[in-house]
């Protein structure tokens, strides 16, 4: 998978948990990001002053200096690059949200990797949102303005929710979309304790029926344990 907008984006990952840091680095490198690792706040500060970065991925639970301290120090120094904060889901979450700490976005742990990638993409292309009104994958076409979708030339009869779902999948074509992303972006749900997964699965099943039934090439795929993806055969996995 190659995403042109990701190349030459340099990310500083500030995370003290070695395993998580390594997984993040490898995963983001696979997404064509350039990554540097800092395991402590001091290290992060040093690197930020030594090299240019486009984005910071900041864990709030750091030994020594608290992540929020680093963030406010960064902002005081006039470093205004986007910061994506990672938090455990406790009161810190509220503080990040409520105190206007200078974070551009936050993600609670544990998170699905596709979600992180989606957030980073959104941050790195801040300012220009995806306004394309015509979306397509293989012989699936969608006109967002006219609210129509066609597969192989035939109109698809989609409910509002299904349309929004398909649009989201198409906009993220070739990338895995997690259930959390769908819950947040399509259903506008915030709480994860809400039993939404079943609802999403049923909607996906229905959408899949309408889009893929009777078609030679299946477009909507389930990636077990992670989420869903729209991809054409040319991108198909082995």
């Amino acid at each position: 998978m190659s995403h042109p907008e990701a190349s030459h984006v340099r990310i500083l990952i500030v995370e003290d948990e070695v395993k998580v840091a390594r997984a993040l680095k490898e995963g983001l490198q696979a997404e064509q990001y350039e990554c540097a690792l800092a395991h402590t706040g001091e290290e992060a500060f040093f690197l930020l002053n030594a090299e240019p970065f486009d984005l910071v991925l900041l864990d709030l639970m750091l030994p020594g200096r608290d992540g929020l301290e680093i963030l406010s120090a960064m902002r005081r120094q006039g470093l205004d690059l986007p910061v994506l904060v990672l938090t455990a889901r406790d009161t810190v979450e509220d503080r990040v949200r409520g105190l206007d700490s200078g974070a551009d976005d936050y993600l609670t742990k544990p998170f699905a990797f596709p979600e992180l990638v989606a957030r980073l993409r959104a941050l790195s292309r801040r300012g220009r949102s995806d306004q394309t009104l015509k979306l397509a994958a293989a012989d699936l076409e969608m006109d967002v303005a006219a609210r129509t979708a066609r597969r192989d030339g035939a109109d698809l009869d989609l409910t509002q929710r299904e349309f929004a779902l398909l649009e989201y999948l198409l906009r993220n074509q070739g990338r895995i979309v997690s259930r959390e992303m769908l819950a947040r972006d399509v259903w506008q749900e915030t709480g994860r304790a809400t039993p939404l997964d079943n609802v999403i699965d049923v909607h996906i099943a229905r959408l899949r029926k309408k889009v893929d039934q009777g078609q030679g090439q299946k477009l909507i795929h389930t990636v077990r344990g992670v989420g869903f993806i729209i991809k054409t055969n040319t991108e198909a996995e082995a």
């Binding site: 889901r89 994860r192 990636v223 344990g225």
Partner: peptide, 24 residues
């Protein structure tokens, strides 16, 4: 192996949901 990892991820999800509920 894919099957194995997917299955483990599902369990991780289940645990995350449980932890979220407990936190609530």
């Amino acid at each position: 192996l894919r099957e194995t990892i997917a299955s483990m991820l599902e369990e991780a999800d289940r645990m995350a949901r449980l932890v979220d509920s407990l936190l609530t």
